[in-house]
Amino acid sequence: MSASAKLASMKPPGLFVYAILYLAFLYVPVLFLPLFSFNDSAFVSFPLAGFTLRWYRAMLADGALGEALANSLKVGAVAAISATLLGLAAARALTRYRLKGTSTVLGFVSLPLFIPDIVLGISLLILVNALSTPLSLSSVIFGHIVLCVPFALAVLLSRLEGFDPSLEEASRDLGETAWMTFLRVTLPLALPGIVASLLLAFIVSFDEFLIAYFLAGTDATLPIYIWGELRFPAKLPIVLALGAAILVVTCLLVLVAEWLRNLGRARTTPLAVGA
């Protein structure tokens, strides 16, 4: 054991216990969601009244929930793609070109991260209202794009900043035009960042409540739907079932993403000429 490891281990062993307790504090409230989604009662009580899957069946049958889910997926996808495209262009501009006022631009674009959602929400509402645009999923999408661009930019900036400019020059030197260089070198290397940005932006949009709440018309996104249901105790367990389902799906998505990432690393195809 190295000297510093020895020093570190001279710390009180209670730290591990603390870590476990802390982890429990984080998990327990969250685990109540799936727990009570199996509860055979519309009311929350501890201990459980019985085990049932009826809430899951009801969830799958709930039309309004399905619609809200579809809306959220739509909004999330469009917002994520748009924010990523905008973020990619901006990140490229900021890392490849010497532009005046780079830090000002960066600060400005990152503002949504530092302004409380409520302020952003009402400001956008004012704008939409002033432009006499009707509130709809489109206004939600717009609001989410504005919210997600700083996230996309942060991810893509860090990915592009470590990019060796000689790689693109080497491609040109070896005979490829600027456009082919982009397709054969820049894009493949930026892809992990692009995927990360898409995922992050999607998650931010999917879970976003307040801005959607202010900007949505009659079509609800999933968080808006959940918000509505939280006031009706009878439909509560269905919402809990939904929460549990979302957790499981998210975990699966992250596992798949990790698997894909490691797959990309192990690529050794020698026959990929012209790729």
Partner: peptide, 28 residues
């Protein structure tokens, strides 16, 4: 640069990380 009859060995080598050795050499 892509049209000149020159080729360069870069200081950082600029080996394409997403391609293996064969594809790097075959790139041009």
């Amino acid at each position: 640069p892509e049209r000149r009859p020159t080729n360069m060995v870069f200081q950082s080598y600029a080996i394409f990380p997403h391609l293996n050795v064969f594809d790097n050499i075959a790139y041009g």
